[in-house]
Amino acid sequence: MRNIWTIASREYKHYFISPIAYVVAFLFLATVGIIFALTILNANDSALYYPSAPDASSVTGPMAFLLLLTSPALTMRLLADEQRMGTMELLLTAPLRDWELVLGKWLGAFLFIATLAGVSLIFPLILDILIDPGIDKGVLFVGYLGVLLVAAAMLGLGVGISAMFSNQVAAFFVSLVIFVIMWWLIGVPASLLPNGGEVFRYLDMASHFYESMIIGVINLADIVYYLSLTALGLFTGTIAVEIRRWR
């Protein structure tokens, strides 16, 4: 556990001196903020169509989508850069298990996203003040839990992909393509196929969030889905590091 924390805290601190992390943080919070502001400004007009006050989903909805674009930027260098700089040799000859290294890298990135999510709590807080008698705290809690689970899964897969490359740009694009497939494209066969579409529907990353957690519904299947993807990513990363040793 101590090794994981040592790796994670270095990564976490590194984000605060990395320009890419600041760009990610800015885009993430600015976009969520703009969408949130527009939602509030248009609340009266849209009340005609949506006869209810805005809730936390106006924040968690865009956040989950933004993770699709930002998490590859946060994970791309995690292991690929160690390989490029030669520091992988340092880590792989330190008394550190391969899975501890991969898990530590993931945890550092996850804590960074969690920090951004924490900062974004300012928006639901404002909403809570504006709306009488306040927003539904259940929707808020489950929505944020969903965002963190989506982040965990994307960062897990991103770390796994980063472990396979020495070039962080390659790691970025491969992660992005995989996320686009899992977020959007995998849902297409689900709606087209007369039979057997359930498998694709289950694999659809977006539906596990937008059909349940965003409106405050907790399904065990959704939680298991995101945790399984996280574990798959971390396992892939560990195997990729292991394979590096053999090459």
Binding site: R10, H14, I17, M85, G86, T87, M88, E89, L90, T93
Partner: peptide
């Protein structure tokens, strides 16, 4: 204790 040929350092 190991010092590889390419000294592995975090320059930041």
């Amino acid at each position: 204790g190991y010092l590889p040929e390419t000294v592995p350092l975090y320059t930041d």
